[in-house]
Amino acid sequence: MDTRLANPSPTVGSETATRLTDLRPGCRARLLAAHLERDDLALLHALGLAERSSFRLCKAGDPWIIQVRGTRIGLSQHVAELLQVEMDDGAGSPADDHLG
């Protein structure tokens, strides 16, 4: 069972880190950290959104909608505000979608 809590990764404090809610629709980004309860974090992971996962922001505003591979995930404003991300230049390998 995943027991990781939402601890910020070392890159969170970097200049590239931003909140999901600061992104514009259509852009791609990677998840850096999710400051969520353990259950919600585990659910995000199970839906395919883990640290370093690449995703596309489909819709801004409550609910925020992102697409991770074939999965569209709706996030309430509260959850979206707790996700720290960085812009993705799209240069990663396919496996980077998850593992970085």
Partner: peptide, 8 residues
């Protein structure tokens, strides 16, 4: 629970 939902 804050909403995290798959949109099928």
């Amino acid at each position: 629970r804050p909403m995290v939902l798959e949109l099928p």
